[in-house]
Design a protein around this nucleic acid. Structure first.
Lengths: 233, 233
DNA sequence: GACAAAATTAAGTAGGCACATAATATTTTT
DNA sequence: AAAAATATTATGTGCCTACTTAATTTTGTC
């Protein structure tokens, strides 16, 4: 033997990935069992297991007990998005962050909001409308509903100076988060607040969070024209 | 001892997660070393390691050798998106899928395309414009460029009957994929093809793929009005 | 042949050990 | 006091073994 440095699970993963890329295994094909691959490559089964888990997480293969591992027959593009706190997002671009509360009101949540929270009975929530600024220019307009039953402390927070976005993310970690992206035309009021033309096409990010079963908040974040979401490299 | 079933790494993960949720550890705080947690919970360090890796992957904590583990001071919302092949997406909704090629042309790629591929020199590529239909109605309009140097076989594919989307995903797995989402107003031609009003706000998904360093394809997928992207539950 | 029970199989997980690696802290040297 | 060498430490990885779990597949029975 010359050198034969031990294979890392990433090496194993890359070799299998490579085999799939070069067509050695096609979508739907079954791969050898972990134990056999391990023997082939002269490494431990646990190393192959970790490699396979990673490929499975990234959506490239499917694994089933007894069924073995196969290349996903219906390939999906699986992407990971990082959505930071807006302040950080702006600062990371090298811009100056600004925040402005527009409205703050306690009222019964409309059915749209109850719907996303999967709630049956109406209840009072805190609605906050606010504008995030980048270098003084409108960046994101958010319309947020906060569940007072789950987060009563929010009433003591000075939302005129600290964004609910930031306070919540630091003080109310969630256990579940649903996201939704779509495009919407600016209505008159939105266009006015974002300083863009009416009917401008805007990317909207809706985010709803829970702790266990309890609703925390739902936000409709309307981004200014030109905003783009990128997958993390 | 009563039962004391062994702790699974998911139990450990959930316990730590819980501790963070309830504020026992705040953003920025350092957590005990894996070994100590393992002793506390009476399990193996490798179990804690797996739990921590998972929390780290999901963006909740940061881990550094010697530095230990700490709760991420700048919490991010990390979400995973699955983008299936369009045909499957339509069929999964219970709709009938349709496909229609609009244009197919070999020409020098414009600088926009060279740009996304990070290519310096101009080269010829295959441009394909096509429409995906759901129950006969326009669903996604795609403008695609395929690199002939990397995928010369595409010239032999009958793109009038099989979508490039599908052929590529089954025959040319990628090793890198960049995604970009934004909103755009429909221009006259787009509005016409998608059967919507001019100036409609449309969600655009741009996807660019490579095998190693070699460009495969870049698509600008313009979705019909009402299209929404959801994170996978 | 149809259905149920039992055996088999391959991935999933827990534990334990040894060592690698990357930060950080400490000590020594200049 | 600054810089360089060294020790320390917590996570990361690999290996091995044993056992669990979920699917099949086989076998047995009616």
């Amino acid at each position: 033997m010359t050198t034969a440095m031990r294979l890392s699970w990433k090496d194993v993963r890359d070799q299998i990935h490579e085999a799939i890329l070069t067509g050695r295994y096609m979508p739907g094909d079954r791969l050898p069992r972990d134990a056999d691959i391990a023997e082939d490559l002269n490494c431990a089964r646990s190393t192959v297991q970790r490699a396979m888990q990673d490929l499975s997480d990234s959506g490239l293969v499917e694994r089933r007990r007894k069924g073995g591992t196969r290349v996903r027959p219906d390939p999906v593009t699986r992407a990971t998005l990082d959505i930071p706190v807006t302040r950080r997002e702006v600062e990371q671009k090298g811009s100056r962050y600004g925040y402005q509360m527009i409205r703050r009101e306690i009222k019964t949540a409309p059915s749209r909001v109850l719907g996303v929270f999967e709630l049956a009975e109406p209840q009072k929530m805190l609605q906050v409308e606010a504008l995030h600024l980048s270098d003084g220019r409108p960046y994101i307009l958010e319309d947020r509903w906060i569940c007072l039953r789950t987060v009563p402390e929010i009433l003591d927070v000075d939302l005129a100076h600290q964004s609910a976005n930031e306070w919540l993310v630091l003080n109310k970690p969630y256990s579940r988060c649903d996201l939704r992206f779509y495009a919407e035309s600016a209505d008159d009021q939105t266009a006015d607040l974002l300083g863009c033309g009416t009917e401008s096409a805007l990317l909207v990010i809706e985010r709803t969070t829970w702790v266990e079963e309890a609703p925390i908040t739902t936000v409709k974040a309307i981004t200014a024209p030109g905003y783009q979401l990128l997958t993390r490299s």
